[in-house]
Nucleic acid binder design. Structure first.
Length: 414
RNA sequence: GCGGGUGUAGCUCAGUUGGUUAGAGCGCCAGUUUGUGGCACUGGAGGUCGCCGGUUCAAUUCCGGUCACUCGCCCCA
């Protein structure tokens, strides 16, 4: 095994590939029901698109795949989907037609240490609701997340955690209060949190270190610093979730590191994936568009880790519908191929093997999990039909070519 | 980026207290006669014991490094 895929990447084969596609289909269907439109953006952007947004984020500073192209431009493989969508909105002058509702399913790239549910090329399905600043929009977006998880059959394995980051004023006054509280206690903080204190203080709140959490017990809370408007906004979000009977927990330690995030932050998390528990993560990012140099564009969205959803879900069983035409003698292969093509023209799934004795072919067909073996030798040709063998039931009878499409579609004999 | 665990046939794993031809189950291939799969029986192919180096008369077995997977930390717009 010397020829391996690049670390942190994987091949999706057979059922796994189908499962993967099924998740994307289910997600796209749910989003489409809500009027979201598909958007496809390039797999890479000018590095600046990501760097302008995330100087304090490790994803941007340490985890991007960044390279200079042959024209000397600095290019970055997208590590997430929101910034490219907002960039596309600006580039295409779409801010005249608000609100905008987009969804995407696309590969993302982060140079991280691979783990279960964490790859260097991974895939996200995401939705963005842009140009609306009402609390009920946040509720709709979360409801879409919940509905999508339900459609995947995994809503019971996840918990919706919700928090508010407040508006700009709440946020900056809280951040300042937190830093003021923690700075004298700096020596007692974990090494990681000492760094966070300077770089990204809010991230100390979700530290896993017990000593950090102990210190935080006496810390100021965001609730104390919420402006009346921000508090009212969050109250309406919570009431909206109650009204739609979407189960949730308020988690005051759920934060976002970047400044353009405000108000609602949420995650659908699971206990089943070890330390990679977030299946869907999202929030309101009213400041992002301006940070990118565009107009104000209040927006909210989320992204689902498709691989993580895949680990939690199961591809529904599908009835086999394939059929194989089975030539008997060496001279029967050409006519068998003609029959295969005729069946395909009828819209049926048809194929054949191009070698092997009858017995051998039947064995392989059975292993493929196909529904039908259509034995087509000299006898059948003369009588204008096939010996149709239904593999799951083991029943077999002669069917005329005229009746064949009908029988195959029905999926059973008689 | 840091720490722990693992790495033997296509898959799941045994085994070697260092010593001649490394095993099982499943899977795969062929056959059990002649136009019929799943079951059974018989036979067969398939491994430089992850890779590189060290110790040793001798290493798949001990040691080091490396790569990969995995768990935790980190990160998680």
């Amino acid at each position: 095994m010397t020829l391996q895929p690049v670390r942190g990447t994987k091949d999706h084969l057979f059922e796994e590939a189908q499962h993967f596609q099924w998740i994307k289909d289910v997600c796209a269907h749910q989003a489409t029901l809500g009027g979201f439109r598909r958007i496809e953006t390039p797999i890479f952007e000018f590095t600046e698109v990501f760097h302008r947004l995330g100087e304090s984020s490790d994803i941007v500073t340490k985890e991007t795949y960044t390279f200079e192209d042959r024209g000397g431009e600095s290019i970055t493989l997208r590590p997430e989907g929101t910034a490219p969508v907002v960039r596309a909105v600006i580039s295409n002058g779409l801010t005249q037609k608000l609100p905008l509702k987009f969804f995407y399913a696309a590969p993302m790239f982060r140079y991280e240490r691979p783990q279960k549910g964490r790859y260097r090329q991974f895939h996200q399905f995401g939705v963005e609701f842009m140009g609306a600043d009402q609390p009920l929009v946040d509720v709709e977006v979360m409801a879409l997340g919940y509905g999508t998880l339900k459609a995947l059959g995994i809503e019971k394995k996840v918990t919706l955690k919700v928090n508010t980051l407040g508006d700009k004023h709440s946020r900056s006054s809280f951040t300042k209060a937190l830093v003021d509280y923690l700075t004298p206690l700096k020596d007692q903080l974990s090494e990681d949190s000492k760094t966070r204190l300077a770089k990204n203080p809010l991230r100390i709140l979700d530290s896993k270190s017990p000593q950090d959490q102990e210190i935080l017990k006496g810390a100021p809370t965001l609730a104390q610093h919420l402006t009346p408007e921000a508090k009212s906004y969050f109250d309406q979000v919570v009431e909206g979730l109650d009204a739609l009977e979407i189960p949730y927990e308020i988690d005051t330690k759920l934060v976002r590191g970047l400044d353009y995030y405000c108000h609602t932050a949420f995650e659908f998390v699971t206990e089943d994936l070890g330390s990679q528990g977030a299946v869907i993560a999202g929030g309101r990012y009213d400041g992002l568009c301006e940070d990118l140099g565009g107009p104000a564009l209040p927006s909210v969205g989320w992204a689902m880790g498709i691989e993580r959803a895949q680990l939690l879900s199961q591809l529904p069983e599908q009835e086999p519908q394939d059929c194989y035409v089975v030539p008997v003698e060496d001279g029967d292969f050409a006519s068998a191929q003609r029959l295969v093509m005729e069946l395909r023209r009828e819209g049926l799934h048809a194929q054949m093997f191009y070698k092997g004795a009858l017995k051998k072919q039947l064995k392989k067909i059975d292993q493929q999990g196909a529904a039908w073996a259509l034995i087509y030798g000299e006898t059948e040709r003369e009588e204008g039909g096939v010996m149709a063998r239904h593999l799951p039931s083991g029943k077999q009878e002669f069917v005329s070519l005229k009746d064949l499409p009908h029988v195959l579609r029905k999926g059973e004999l008689q």
